[in-house]
Amino acid sequence: MSFTKKTFAAAVMLAAASVALAEEAVLRVSAIPDEAPTELQRKFAPLGSYLEKELGMKVQFVPVTDYAAVVTALTSDKIDMAWLGGFTYVQAKERGKVVPLVQREEDTKFTSKYIGSVAAGINSLKDLKGKSFAFGSASSTSGHLMPRYFLQKQNIKPETYFKNVAYSGAHDATVAWVASGKVEGGALNASVWDKLVEAGKVDATKVKVIGTTPTFYDYNWTVRGSLDAKLQKKITAAFLKLDPKNPEHQQILELQRATRFVGTKPENYKGIEAAAREAGLLK
């Protein structure tokens, strides 16, 4: 009887261990929803397959509805890794232990674009005085924080300079708003602007670039601080291994709009944190 109890107890422990192992065998990944959900899924699919091969584990993409949800999920261990903007990384760091692993080389010198309505005759920021203006998400680095920060450096306080300030929720939505006349100006990620132009999704007769911000650090892949250290190293190595000369890797890099990935560190985002505090967006 004693043997049976011990056997049963051992079986329970083994089952629990198996469940834990199964959970650990899935890397749960998410991303800030700075573009349409279908576009985020399309961009991630080849990268997810690549990471599964490199890490020897299942990689699951977990979509979220807004920027805050990504930060909450990462800092409460609901997901393991997330594609964050510089500002959402700073927000996550304020709430818990997170580790930034890699960023695209392009993210070391990122910029945002200011755009204006052609029909409204907007050719510069001066033309937008007293007009309507849209940022992307309130938590977006390149769609809100840094464009706002650099406007304030020019003594332009959005809430008083523009007739009204709105938030479209995403970079591509901001372009659509300006093109449709919903607002007369806006700000968005330079990379998304370039992608939309290349894809023929920007009508040059309706919207145009009227300015570009100075450079700043932006997006990165960040993991929860409690993620196994060895797995963190394997993830980093997988990203750094991506080679544009390899056809399979080239497709992944192109979808990520990256020439290559490089390592990153918390110190890179001190400027973003300072800008957020100065803009009153981080307490």
Rank of each mutant, 00 (worst) to 15 (best):
D218F: 07
P147M: 01
W193F: 15
R95G: 05
V202M: 08
T264A: 07
K43R: 15
L74D: 01
G271T: 13
M13A: 15
R95N: 11
F110S: 12
K182G: 07
A17F: 14
E24H: 11
L255K: 14
G263R: 10
I115C: 04
I122L: 04
A69T: 10
K208F: 07
A275V: 10
A31F: 00
K157P: 03
Q256T: 05
F162R: 00
A17G: 15
A36E: 15
K5H: 13
S226H: 08
L40G: 04
A274Y: 09
Q256F: 02
A173W: 01
Y50G: 03
V178W: 02
G130P: 06
L242W: 01
E94P: 03
G48N: 04
E54W: 00
E248K: 11
G271P: 05
A45K: 11
Q152M: 15
Q250N: 13
L101Q: 00
G169V: 06
D203M: 08
Y167R: 07
A82W: 01
S191G: 12
A237W: 04
Y219S: 13
L151N: 02
V90R: 00
K6E: 15
V90H: 03
S2M: 14
P247F: 04
P100T: 07
V62C: 07
N246P: 05
T108Y: 05
N123Q: 11
E273F: 07
T174H: 02
R104Y: 05
S168H: 05
H171P: 05
F133Q: 02
R42N: 12
K241A: 14
G169L: 02
A73E: 04
E39F: 08
M1S: 15
L27W: 00
I32M: 09
V71P: 03
G280Y: 05
K109V: 05
I235F: 02
A9W: 11
L47V: 07
A92E: 01
S2R: 15
E184N: 12
A15I: 13
Y161L: 10
E105L: 10
W221G: 00
